[in-house]
């Protein structure tokens, strides 16, 4: 199961890298979103995908699942969500002002 997950993560990272390297603004942002999904899945997988009961009170289960990665991912997803929302607003504003979504036209050093 871990191997499969790692393959999925690899594919996500590849896609994300490709999208981040394109020149369209929206694609870059989508790439960052996909990258964050890959990172979150990696966090889940690295802790080991073992089965077990929920780590609640009681001592009769044979094994317990590790609750920490899930808590971490929840935090990371919320942060990622907030940043994505902000990025989309910023991108829209940039598009409105610069009238382009092409990163090639967003280069330059002039200080207008």
């Amino acid at each position: 199961m871990e191997i499969l997950m790692i393959l999925v993560i690899g594919v996500l990272f590849t896609v994300a890298t490709y999208m981040i390297l394109t020149k369209s603004l929206l694609r870059v942002i989508l790439g960052v979103v996909i990258l964050s999904h890959g990172a979150h899945l990696l966090l889940l997988t690295m802790a080991g995908l073992n089965q077990g009961s929920p780590p609640l009170l009681g001592e009769d289960a044979a094994s317990y699942a590790d609750p920490l990665p899930q808590a971490l991912i929840l935090t990371a997803i919320v942060i990622g969500f907030g940043i994505t929302a902000f990025m989309l607003v910023l991108a829209y504003q940039t598009y409105k002002v610069h009238k382009t979504d092409n990163f090639d036209e967003l280069r330059g050093t002039e200080d207008d």
């Binding site: 960052v32 990172a39 990696l42 690295m46 971490l72 990622g80």
Partner: peptide
């Protein structure tokens, strides 16, 4: 995001 990867 790479920070999360390193933490993982």
């Amino acid at each position: 995001m790479l920070f999360i990867v390193a933490i993982a």
